[in-house]
Nucleic acid binder design. Structure first.
Lengths: 173, 173
DNA sequence: CAGTTTATGTCAGCCTTGTTGACTTTCCAA
DNA sequence: TTGGAAAGTCAACAAGGCTGACATAAACTG
């Protein structure tokens, strides 16, 4: 399995410089993901402590805000957790008045999820902080680096998830 | 706080196109991080289940492999967890014969950590899988995208962490 | 209409991995 | 020789994953 494609032996292949594919470069990329993800979540994590919420609540709030009226099932698909796990989080958010769950009109089995004004306020606080860091990183790196960043991340996703990533901006083309 | 720097109003600033800094683009970047990180950890997570280990064990194994002989304190700094949390993981790895903990020679309070042959084997299995996905993403995206990817990730890290990210390849310049 | 599937919610229990606090042992260094 | 740093350990707890089982309502299907 992948014997011919391992190690630094493939530094030069078919006349093209592939130095960026050495094991050492890949290891650097792996650690970059690890350290960057920590930075990426650090600001929201700090804010969430003030509300006794965690990352799981943040994720739910984020995707409900992105797609108001989304169903529980759709959220389960995006988040990739069990319904029991999501339900625990959603119940807290509904009980606390941050999320509203409306019975579907066409299909009354479905629940459509919306942020309340309070939910919108918390979403704003969290995403302001996260965007602020992302904006600083983008600005320092420049537009070409950002394009590369997004290209590599998209390649790293599971193909199943790529569809969730793409849905909301297709109309903007 | 950041009133002048929020929203899509700053699409054009000082004559330079900053369309990549709109809230919508930042939101896309945030979701890219979320979905990509899931893909990034998916393969090792699957492998770890066969050994009844978790991501915490993987992280310890990774950084001990990267810096053989590293101390517990150094590992604590890199991983950003409490010593109780790390100790639980290290104890399991030592008990299972994947990690060796040697008393320091200069300072006998310190423990220097090394992977055993079995530890090296598991590290290899995990990193092969993770590198394989990273390599596919890098190859599909190309060297310029990879450079941008790394630049943005480095900007996203907490400044404190950047030093851990840089340590091991400074000599390669 | 009867039976099946789907969407959701809920209870109970378990695991991993993080936390705090308290305490001990070892041992370097002033 | 004594203070403090490094390391380990115990106990208790919380968040947020998981499985399994079960309930209900609604939609779908023959």
């Amino acid at each position: 399995m992948m014997m011919a494609d391992r190690g630094t032996a493939n530094a030069l292949v078919s006349g093209e410089s592939l130095l960026f594919l050495t094991d050492e470069q890949l290891r650097r990329g792996i650690e970059a993901m690890f350290f960057a993800y920590r930075g990426f979540t650090a600001d929201p994590d700090r804010i969430l402590q003030n509300y006794a919420y965690g990352r799981a609540h943040h994720r739910a709030i984020h995707f409900i805000n992105r797609s108001p009226g989304t169903t529980v099932n759709n959220l389960l698909d995006i988040l990739g957790v069990t319904k029991q796990s999501l339900n625990r989080v959603l119940r807290a958010l509904v009980d606390d008045g941050l999320v509203e769950s409306r019975v579907g009109t066409r299909d009354k089995r479905e629940r459509h999820l919306f942020l309340t004004d309070a939910g919108i306020a918390l979403e704003r606080e969290l995403s302001d902080a996260q965007r602020s860091r992302m904006r600083a990183a983008y600005r320092a790196a420049g537009p070409e680096a950002v394009a590369g960043f997004r290209t590599v991340l998209e390649q790293m996703m599971d193909p199943d998830m790529r569809r969730h990533y793409q849905t909301t901006t297709e109309s903007a083309s």
